[in-house]
């Protein structure tokens, strides 16, 4: 068994990195992926940066969450109006 032949290339690592972060790789793919990372500083860096990118997007979203509540009353009013206008809704998509 030539283990190196089964190892993903750096290019393949970049193609699988997003699935790796999602834990969507098969156990075998995941093992080979991690093996490659152990040996390759550039791919380690690439995956670390991608993870940091994802974490940063989450951070931006959590900052935005503060200002969301204003519209709720407006939507409830809209829904009530719609229900009053047509209490026996059946069709439409």
């Amino acid at each position: 068994m030539k283990i190196m032949n089964m190892m993903p290339s750096c290019r393949e690592i970049t193609e699988q990195a997003s699935d790796y972060l999602n834990q969507d790789l098969s156990p075998w793919q995941r093992a080979a992926f991690r093996m490659h990372l152990l040996m390759c500083v550039y791919c380690r860096r690439h995956v670390k940066h991608l993870g940091l990118t994802v974490a940063t997007l989450g951070k931006i979203a959590s900052e935005e969450k503060a200002r969301e509540n204003d519209d709720i009353q407006q939507i409830i009013a809209l829904i009530k109006r719609q229900q009053k206008e047509s209490p026996e809704q059946k069709g439409g998509d």
Binding site: S9, C10, R11, Y42, C43, H49, L52, T56, K59
Partner: peptide, 18 residues
Amino acid sequence: GRWASPPTVWHADTPDDL
């Protein structure tokens, strides 16, 4: 399939740094 132009170092370790 190896890096010809590898990723450069970012001077940031956390989302807050970025």
